[in-house]
Write a protein that binds this DNA or RNA. Structure first.
Length: 808
RNA sequence: GGGCGAGUGACGAAAUGGCAGACGUUCGAGCUUUAGGAGCUCGUGCUCGUAAGAGCGUGAGGGUUCGAGUCCCUCCUCGCCCACCA
């Protein structure tokens, strides 16, 4: 180090605001739609404007920003936009709790968070900001709704929904925590309401396919499980004494049909009323009423006993010819399949338990060894040969599945069928702070869509927020009362708003040109950017949001508005950052803010720290204890960065190799989102530079500044400038490495005797096999370990090891 | 109950089947600065040993291999997602 003047100290708090202002003024982060470089769309999930950029945001956005900057330095014109998922229940809760209008609360929070993103040093093109609660945005939610309606992709139906009796509103599934309302902890009940749905099930099969997508296996599996495709057959059995009544059921095991000794209907099944015998009516009514009122928490209880009631009615098992009783039980779900099952207690665990509890017959029809057995200890759910199955006895069960299904088709009582676990997407919410559903109800014309030229249906501003008495919108007379677009007569508006997942299902198209008012997307600009090249988002969004995005893309494609099948080509998920083992949330009051660390160490240190903590895809427990380490690293970078360029002298081959290896390591790590090991490699290089001198040191420092630029944009910009670099370091090209130079000139070769390390030899890289053997056997430590035993074989791995195996 | 991950020092973590613990924190010793939230060197898995060194060591048990943290089998523990899905 030079001596006479004391080295200036690294002062991030002075450097960072200076560069942030400079970058904003010079438009460094503004991305043109076209440049001399190929376009690359790097999307990262936009935040909900909760108020503060906390640790979870840093964990998501600092690495995403780093990855986007890396791609930019690698010669792409990178679009890296940001916006706000600005509708949602929290704003309404704030309105109730603090008497602040949701719009004001949201604006305040967005301003604060925008400022914090700037202080993070994120390379965001703010000109393209998208805000979902503005009419310019949500009118396109309404437009898509109308288009979906025309195509039959949106429809209205009565369905049981999660209902909080205290707050008098529907709750989204994710707002039901352990069966209780997220806000008031009241037990949530099911309630039948007439609601709007998007027909996502129409795309179930296509959504199962991920052809050509670079998505994590984990997410693909989760989505496939969520969609839950089951193959089997749909068959119907006639009900005794009811000429027109048949019970249709779905089964994945048609091969077990001879073992169907009873049937079970869901309590909500429409046939229950029709077929129940007079003597069983009271018991059935009581059971049905109880099931309807059942809270979510009861249904969540594991291992609950199977309850049910006999309807007194009988069906005919068309295959076995047996007369079988029909029961109702809440273990059969109205929402899956046809809401009815053939119960095969011998080969289904639930049916077995139910039969045992209610003294119903159990008949073995599948046998693993092909022989008939007596009573079963438990349900046998595996495969085998059909037994006691009339003409099909002896048939392997896998064959029987197909044979029975086609036989049912032949006789006109059924057919092979596929059922999905996936339900249609219920988009109605009894909420104020969301997109109004563009529908009008007229006594004369019924349900009338608001014409496209009357969009947007704007959310009225003057509203009371009490949290009681249903949707606040329903109480705004000036909004509710309108005229019918068809007959001009008096009519009422739909007062439900859309699920906020609708807002986020297509925002990636809007970033391209958020100001265009003729179309949801600027088609010309869209061609230059879409589909998204990379998307990073938390693993907690693996199912809902990501599935909705895919659905909306496919629906818009089929409507002729998008020319591609999938919105996102490459996806990666960061893990969840928790605090003391628990998820962070406002309601728990354990949200950690990194502000004090930003104020003490600077944004560059905090950025590096969240990337260095551990593997990004795994998540971590927030503990700032180690932040000193990344701070010290930047101090060292500062010290070597300010060192005067050395006098001409001999090169330092070891340092030259270290630079090549570090460039290789950091490049490969960033491609794989391994931020932690990339930082570790740069730390090693900085230490090597610190102890070096001469021209190699200066070149190494230049390389380090470039490598570090995506991670720590401020300090590297400052050092770049002070070291005489032209323009912004962030406009520089990523350093290249020469694979042949990245190889060390001398290597440590380990010598093992029977797998135990006995010697380490420093040898030139590329030493031949025979020379390695000779060198190994020449070592006294090795001969001592061999102790005169005969050598059976010698394994040589070039530049790595020699293993001498002796006779035993 | 099903699916998917993961178990490595005091702690966060590294490790294409080839020197386990890189990098960082912590702690210890020394230095420097000593107005500093600044800096430098060495050490820091366990056991024995003053030391050189030796032995042991990646949740448990087996297996494959010249060689296993890594691959295979069984089990245990933890995390996440789904959960009476017929």
């Amino acid at each position: 180090m030079t001596s006479e003047t004391r080295t200036e100290r690294y002062a991030p708090l002075a450097i960072e605001p200076k560069w942030q202002a400079h970058w904003a003024a010079s438009g460094l982060h503004d991305t043109p739609d076209q440049s001399d470089k190929p376009n690359f769309y790097f999307l990262t999930a936009f935040p909900y404007p909760s108020g503060d950029v906390h640790v979870g945001h840093w964990y998501a956005y600092a690495p995403a920003d780093c990855a986007a900057r890396f791609i930019r330095m690698r010669g792409r014109n990178v679009l890296f936009p940001m916006g706000f998922d600005a509708f949602g229940i929290n704003a309404e809760n704030a309105a109730i709790d603090r008497k602040m209008h949701p719009a004001i609360w949201t604006e305040k929070n967005m301003a604060q968070m925008r400022d914090q993103f700037v202080k993070m040093g994120a390379a965001i093109d703010w000109r393209r900001e998208v805000i979902t609660c503005y009419p310019e945005y949500y009118r396109w939610n309404q437009w898509m709704f109308l288009k979906f309606l025309e195509k039959g992709l949106a429809y209205r139906a009565t369905a049981p929904v999660n209902w909080c009796p205290r707050d008098e509103t529907v709750l989204a599934n994710e707002q039901v925590i352990n069966g209780r309302c997220e806000r008031c902890e009241t037990l949530v009940v099911k309630k039948d309401l007439t609601q709007w749905f998007y027909k996502i099930t129409q795309y179930a099969d296509e959504l199962l396919r991920f052809d050509g997508l670079d998505w994590p296996e984990r997410v693909r599996v989760m989505q496939q499980n969520w969609i839950g495709r089951s193959e089997g057959a749909e068959i119907e059995f006639p009900v005794e004494g009811h000429r027109d009544a048949t019970i249709r059921f779905f089964t994945t095991r048609p091969d077990t049909i001879y073992g169907a000794t009873f049937m079970v209907l869901a309590p909500e099944h429409p046939l229950v009323e029709v077929i129940t015998s007079a003597s069983q009516k009271i018991a059935v009514d009581i059971y049905v009423a109880k099931a309807r009122e059942e809270s979510e928490i009861d249904r969540l209880t594991a291992e609950r006993p199977k309850t049910g009631v006999d309807t007194g009615a009988f069906a005919t098992n068309v295959f076995s010819g047996q007369r079988i009783p029909i029961w109702i039980a809440d273990y059969v779900l109205a929402s899956y399949g046809t809401g009815a099952i053939m119960a095969v207690p011998a080969h289904d665990e639930r049916d077995f338990a139910f039969a045992k509890a209610n003294g119903l017959p159990i008949k073995e029809v599948i046998s693993s060894d092909g022989l008939e057995h007596g009573s079963l200890e438990a349900a046998y759910t595996g495969s085998g040969r059909m037994v006691r199955s009339g003409p099909y006895s002896g048939t392997p069960s896998e064959v029987g599945k197909r044979t029975i299904a086609s036989e049912a088709k032949k006789t006109g009582i059924g057919a092979p069928a596929v059922t999905y676990r996936l339900r249609d997407w219920l988009i109605s919410r009894q909420r104020y702070w969301g997109t109004p559903i563009p529908i009008v109800y007229c006594d004369t014309d019924g349900t009338v869509p608001v014409p496209e030229d009357q969009l947007p249906v704007v959310l009225p501003r003057d509203t009371q927020f009490t949290g009681r008495g249903g949707s606040p919108l329903a109480k705004v007379d000036s909004f509710v009362n309108t005229t019918c677009p068809r007959c001009g007569g008096p009519a009422k508006r739909e007062t439900d708003t859309m699920d906020t997942f609708v807002d986020s299902s297509w925002y990636m198209y809007r970033y391209v040109d958020p100001k265009i008012d003729s179309h949801f997307m600027n088609v010309e600009a869209g061609k230059k950017w879409l589909p998204v090249d990379r998307y990073t988002i938390g693993i907690e969004h693996a199912i809902l949001h990501l599935l909705y995005c895919r659905f909306v893309c496919k629906a818009l494609r089929d409507l002729g508005y998008l020319p591609f099948d999938e919105p996102i080509k490459h996806l990666r998920n960061q893990g969840t950052i928790v605090f003391k083992g628990r998820k962070m949330s406002k309601s728990r009051g354990n949200v950690q803010a990194p502000d004090e660390y930003v104020a003490r160490y600077g944004a560059d240190t905090v950025r590096l720290f969240v990337m260095f903590m551990g593997p990004w895809t795994e998540g971590n427990d927030w503990d700032a204890a180690g932040i000193e380490g990344t701070s010290r690293f930047l101090h060292r970078v500062w010290t070597v960065g300010l060192a005067e360029r050395g006098p001409a002298g001999p090169r330092d081959p070891d340092l030259d190799v270290a630079v090549q290896r570090t460039i290789k390591k950091v490049t490969e790590d960033l491609e794989a989102y391994h931020f932690n090991t990339a930082v570790a490699a740069m730390m090693e290089l900085s230490t090597a530079i610190f102890h070096a001198s001469g021209p190699s040191r200066d070149d190494a420092t230049d390389a380090l500044v470039l490598l570090l630029a995506p991670f720590a944009p401020h300090i590297t910009e400052e050092l770049w400038q002070r070291r005489g670099g032209a323009g912004s370091v962030h406009r520089r090209t990523w350093p290249a490495y020469d694979p042949s130079l990245a190889r060390a000139t001398s290597v440590t070769v380990v010598v093992q005797v029977n797998g135990k390390v006995r010697e380490r030899l420093e040898l030139p890289a590329g030493t031949g096999e025979d020379a390695l053997k000779t060198a190994a056997l020449a070592s006294p430590k090795v001969t001592e370990a061999i102790a005169g035993a005969a050598i059976a074989r010698v394994i040589v791995v070039a530049d790595k090891l020699v293993n001498i195996v002796t006779e035993r």
